[in-house]
Amino acid sequence: MKKIFSIALVLAAFASCKSNNGGNTLPVYGKRTPVTKTVNGQTATDTIYQTIPAFKFVNQYGDSISEKNLSGKIYVADFFFTSCPSICPVMQRNMLNVYNTFKADPDIKILSFTIDPKYDSVKVLKKYADKLGISGDTWWFLQGKKDTTYKLAEKNYLVAVSEDKTTPGGYVHQGYFVLVDKEKRVRGAYDGTQPEQVNQLIADIKTLKAEPTPAAGQ
């Protein structure tokens, strides 16, 4: 509960940032580190934003997927498991909307990480994707080590994923859809169970797509 609250607080803080930005820019989530540089005798402070670290997972086709496969891509990440009886069907119904909007766009990807890798083998994930009507390489269902997935979720995607054996299905999670930009920075978190929030996510992806690509080395 405390965790949920602190995440809500963080989200609220960033939500309030958003309005300060004005216009159509999306906030940047995560830690920021100021870096002071001296150039030509002048001191300048730069901000380094937190990014999604390197990772390696396997997708529903059995292919190995790492951050390299996502370089220059905008993507949406979420956490689920195929046997989830509670919020997952709603999340997938909403994510299908995102998929159908962007499936012809090679720069947009969807990554659904299973939090139950023991049951959700590559074979199970493939069957699930087939039944959901997913083909091609827009939407990947990813399986990796459970610890790695949880760490990535909690530390990097700001998604509260925690095991709770008392809930049917064995897990509780928050159902966030997390938006990551071309520079691996988290730019939004949306309640994946709410159709309106998912519409906002679709609009925000379009906004991100229109953002100028930063100069190399920046």
Partner: peptide, 15 residues
């Protein structure tokens, strides 16, 4: 409704 949908539409081949 979370599974079968607001209009009873189900979820593709899953539900």
């Amino acid at each position: 409704q979370n599974c079968h949908g607001a209009h009873g539409e189900g979820l593709n081949g899953l539900i």
